[in-house]
Design a protein around this nucleic acid. Structure first.
Lengths: 195, 195
DNA sequence: CGATAAACGGACGAGGTTGGTCCGCTTAGT
DNA sequence: ACTAAGCGGACCAACCTCGTCCGTTTATCG
């Protein structure tokens, strides 16, 4: 993350320069979550309270900043998936990952777009995340807790779908709609649903 | 639909004028489905094989054309919901409506966006459609075939979600992914799921 | 406390997109 | 063959975005 600074090593940068990098990264985090991956450099600079000149002096490019910010969250997701694999109860592991995963997606519009692809950003964490999900679903399949006729790709798609619709037919979703949707989907996925 | 012609009544327009209106409406249908509600007037004119001048001579505005085209599909949806209400089996009625509804959404990117709102278009059919869905879900609730802890709004949201994710984590959905997602969701909604 | 280089802000330019108009040319209809 | 209706697309104005450049400010150090 600190590697965003253009000229690394050399000398310690001035205090205001360091402070502004921090502000820019913070602003980028909230901005990409609220606005999406198409958030402009000017908007991030405005939120950070710095000029656009400072933005381009501190950050190699708008893309690099967004990729760095999104990479943080993706790494977190992969870590959650890894921990879920260790759960002795495969179904609980899957549901706990699913909940964390969907919650992160619901909290960040930009992350949601990034996971959907076609946003021009380069995100190397996508493949590892996909692999972890496949393993996790495989686990659940072997334990017989997940419907056998549902391949792991379908799990990826339904989990992705759960966060997307914040409004429909004039209805406005509450902040926890993703949780309600997820419960329905998980019940639909469970091989032995508890009603 | 024919009311799109600016000067109605008066005299019968020339053959080429009538033909071009037809072409524009057809082009708008496919363009809004493939590109979305943000499709430009130039793009529609290009697809219709007419100049941009002809577009604005034949159509009051880009918005009016899109609204007319979307209204057609919305009316169709309302009609399907009405027929579903008449089904003696409330669960079958609900699933048949859900399938048709989701299929229409999956077939049109623009329709999907329009149902999500915030696209600036005025669509009076939204409220009737919402009412029909509420009635249909109420039917299913009374018959005890739909999980009682799921309000009709949740049904709206999960049905909306099913179509949205055509790609995630680097995966590309096939054309029938909506059907696979829908099956999972319907199983999650069913009070007496048949496995 | 200066001196000075680093850092800052934001005006600005280039490039792109969009909705919509206007006018010289074409063509359907009589 | 005449004419009014219609056509195409160059064009315009308004807007937005990225990224640079330069005059001003400020952190740091002797």
């Amino acid at each position: 993350m600190d590697r965003l600074l253009a000229g690394d090593a050399e000398r310690r940068p001035r205090a205001d320069a360091r402070r502004n990098v921090e502000r820019l990264v913070d602003a980028a985090r909230t901005a990409v979550a609220e606005v999406g991956v198409d958030v402009t450099a000017h908007e991030i600079a405005r939120r950070a309270g710095v000029g656009i000149g400072t933005f381009y002096r501190r950050v190699p490019s708008r893309e690099a900043l967004l990729e760095a910010v999104l990479a943080e969250v993706l790494d977190e997701m992969i870590e959650v998936a890894r921990r879920a694999m260790a759960d002795p109860d495969p179904w609980r592991g899957l549901t706990e990952f699913a909940t964390a995963y969907v919650q992160l997606r619901a909290a960040s519009c930009g992350l949601n777009e990034a996971l959907g692809g076609e946003c021009g950003l380069t995100l190397p964490q996508l493949a590892p995340l996909r692999d972890q999900l496949r393993l996790l679903v495989g686990h659940a399949h072997e334990a017989g807790v997940l419907r056998p006729d549902v391949p792991w790709e379908d799990v990826a798609f339904v989990l992705a779908s759960v966060t997307t619709s914040t409004r429909t037919i004039g209805l406005r979703a509450g902040a926890d709609q993703w949780r309600r949707n997820l419960r329905i989907v998980l019940d639909g996925l469970h091989a032995a649903p508890g009603r």
